[in-house]
């Protein structure tokens, strides 16, 4: 139990207060920045600030900086697998209908005869069957 006491880290009060104030300042900054439009950068800026805030919380409030490194491993591991989940799913959702866009650079030229005409195959036939009201979703997702 002596080990126990020795391993405990009692952080100074000022450190907690500093981290807390830092978080509040960052909140103000992110709200302020969001009032301006940076186009594509909006997402990156907001997420960047959120990551900094999250790191502060994890490192100091959750003591990751001072604790056994295995907790860090568990935490980072969970984010890693979450990343795999989202990114691998996006390999599908963002790239549907790809192969029809890649007609200009076929993978194996001699293997098949490639289409040369227009590529928007789906939309031209939407009228063929009036009951396919949901088909519009497809047109939007594949024609990007």
């Amino acid at each position: 139990m002596k080990d126990d006491a020795a391993q405990r880290h009692i952080l100074p009060l000022n450190l907690y207060l500093a981290v807390g104030s830092g978080l509040l300042v960052l909140t103000v900054i992110t709200v302020a920045v969001a009032q301006m439009d940076f186009g594509q950068m909006n997402l990156l800026i907001a997420m960047g600030i959120a990551v900094v805030k999250a790191t502060l919380v994890a490192m100091f409030f959750m003591h990751l900086k001072y604790d056994n490194r295995i907790y860090m491993l568990v935490f980072v591991g969970s984010l890693l697998f979450l990343g795999v989940f989202i990114i691998f799913t996006m390999f599908d959702t963002l790239r549907r209908g790809d192969i029809y866009e890649e007609i200009a650079e076929p993978y194996q030229k001699e293997a098949v005869i490639y289409r040369t005409a227009e590529t928007g195959t789906a939309s031209s036939h939407a009228a063929a069957d009036s009951s396919h009201n949901a088909a519009e979703t497809e047109t939007e997702t594949s024609d990007h």
Binding site: A111, I113, R115, T121, A128
Partner: peptide, 18 residues
């Protein structure tokens, strides 16, 4: 993978059926 690409790329002179 090579065969899969063949299975997925429709030849240009195809006749289309809905």
């Amino acid at each position: 993978f090579q065969d899969f690409v063949r299975l997925h790329i429709v030849p240009a002179n195809s006749m289309e059926i809905k």
